[in-house]
Amino acid sequence: MKLSSKVIPLNIENIDTDQLIPAQFLKLTTKKGYGKNLFYNWRYFHDYEPNPQFELNNPLREGAQVIIGGNNFGCGSSREHAAWAIADYGIKAVITSQFADIHKGNLYNNNVLPIEIKPDELSVLMNYFLENSSAIIDVDLENQTVKVEESGFNVKFEIAPFKKKCLLEGVDEIQYLINMKEEIAEFELNNY
């Protein structure tokens, strides 16, 4: 997975899942259709009237596939709707210094790459993209790098080998478990 894209920088810490997708939008029984309500309370005033102060509404950032968020991104609820909203909006990677655990897992399971970099690196990256609305970021999963050609920013990120393999090879955790059913049944027999 290689990505070259504009960026939406959200210089806010502890972005919680209720901001990513408020509870009134959790009533669908599908995984699609959440993108227009991503960050609903910050993005719109009333009746979908855009708040021009919010970076998702900055026309220069149109088409961005990467969000950079403050520390502790995705804290709060387990709602996968938050990850569905991010994916449905067209985001392919989220960069922060630390994700909340459940949300991080949800992003993985929807093929959105969660990238954790050091707090000082995050702050450099955040400031650069706040000032440069049309700048491009390069994300490379195979080499585990985040680069910005124009600024010379270049850092490596860590990722669990199993998660990397799943994303690169399109391995689905659920299919992996379904294939293990016999082994699981044997485990039950021996332990219960």
């Binding site: 459940i102 897992g105 949800n106 399971n109 955790e173 659920i174 379904i178 699981i184």
Partner: peptide, 12 residues
């Protein structure tokens, strides 16, 4: 857990 994991538990 997230919903993908709910599916995993239901299936396996």
């Amino acid at each position: 857990i997230g919903t993908s994991q709910v599916e995993q538990v239901l299936a396996s």
